[in-house]
Design a protein around this nucleic acid. Structure first.
Lengths: 229, 229
DNA sequence: GCAAAAGTGTTTACAGTACACCCATGG
DNA sequence: CCATGGGTGTACTGTAAACACTTTTGC
């Protein structure tokens, strides 16, 4: 017999994207709790009765990874009757973006193992529940969103090089971009601060560092120009 | 005290768009049942425990309007703790598109009144629950979606004129389009069949009729060209 | 001095935009 | 014959795309 809450419950599941070692990765956990203990899955949990959905998404991510203040956005709600082995649970999927360099994930209770998996590999891995569908939907959403909103910066450290930014876009969009055209466009938008600082310790000409200027971005939105890559 | 189901329940709400009398309208109902009996709201109902979300959306729309086989798409899930007066109910919002000419809505039990309201008016009207937020989200989604997917045709009769199509796009996008450029572009895509048939009974040169060719559209998608207005 | 990535402009092609007149019908 | 919307082509403009060489550093 199922728990009373399973008359109809809802959960949130998160696809946490990170840009690490020149690769686009997502966070998977090996579940340390039933249901589906031991299987690979996205971080997710039931929503509390007195908790807004967006709050729940942040709370769940913190509970499973220790991360706070993460950029998150709702993607889609999955509600097939049989998607959860214990009863009727619909789940609201979110994607989340984190700068892995400055925000390492922690091992948390209830999680047997936590790991960053390259997105491409994860898409081919069998995950628990309907998490493969969720992952696909989130990856698609990120692809669409990154073209028209300045969310890529959430995946980078505060100071970054243009090549890092370009590589990131290439990974997300899954296509190569022309260096000169990319720079022309992104600099032309005027949302980056040119810093008086350079890369150090690289075996080639050191790149200039840049930072995202959210105030300039806001002005750009007010003018109706917008962000479009 | 609240009903047991309200420990956590979920509903679907629909924004049904129709193109009628040269205007873009949405369907509102005056609720004949509590909660919020008597107030204007979107068609919506609780989801059954053994029912997929998309099925629920179709069932609810049929139950309240008599319409079957309607194009629907999930938009967003609204989950503020206090959004429903009777307890914790999150709602999954859908938009729906109907050709009002061939599919009139019926008065159904449990509905005090049903009416088509111009979208612009509805956006200014105070609706029950958080339905104003839902309506806004759906109108935005439609705006975005109609540019990149051939969904506009769902709002038109099978045979239509190019001017009707253009007017529809102008209403949805809320901006004027150039007649010659519009025709060039839509005909250039090659997803319309030119019919050997003309408007009748109009006090001006009768327009040619066209129909949407879904097979040609599919081929276009396979070629990677896609629909883009 | 060699390897490795940074940085930089110009030309070309295509798609978007602006624009004005004749045509077919009903009344 | 007049009013109404239908139907058509061209020139211009601006953005996207293609493309190659010099510079700076570490080793």
């Amino acid at each position: 017999m199922q728990n009373e809450i399973f008359k109809s419950a809802f959960s949130v599941d998160c696809v946490l994207f990170g840009f690490d070692e020149g690769e686009l990765k997502i966070l998977l956990i090996k579940r340390g709790q039933p249901p589906m203990k031991g299987s690979l899955a996205l971080p997710g949990e039931l929503v509390f009765p007195e908790e807004d959905l967006d709050d729940a998404a942040h709370r769940v991510l913190e509970q499973l990874t220790g991360l706070t203040d993460i950029y998150m956005e709702q993607v889609y709600t999955f509600g097939k009757v049989d998607r959860h082995p214990d009863g009727r649970v619909i789940t609201i999927a979110y994607y989340a973006l984190v700068n892995t360099k400055d925000h390492p994930v922690k091992e948390m209770p209830g999680v047997e193992e936590i790991r960053w998996a390259p997105l491409k590999d994860a898409l081919k891995t069998k995950l628990g529940f309907d998490h493969n569908d969720i992952l696909e939907a989130c990856a698609e959403k990120l692809k669409r969103r990154v073209r028209t909103a300045p969310i890529g910066f959430e995946l980078l450290p505060e100071k970054f090089t243009l090549s890092e930014l370009q590589t990131l876009y290439e990974l997300i969009l899954d296509k190569e971009l022309d260096k000169r055209n990319f720079r022309k466009k992104i600099l032309g938008m005027g949302v980056l601060n040119v810093l008086n600082e350079k890369q150090k310790g690289v075996a080639h000409r050191p790149a200039n560092l840049y930072s995202f200027d959210i105030e300039r971005y806001k002005r750009l939105v007010i003018d109706g120009s917008g962000f479009e890559l």
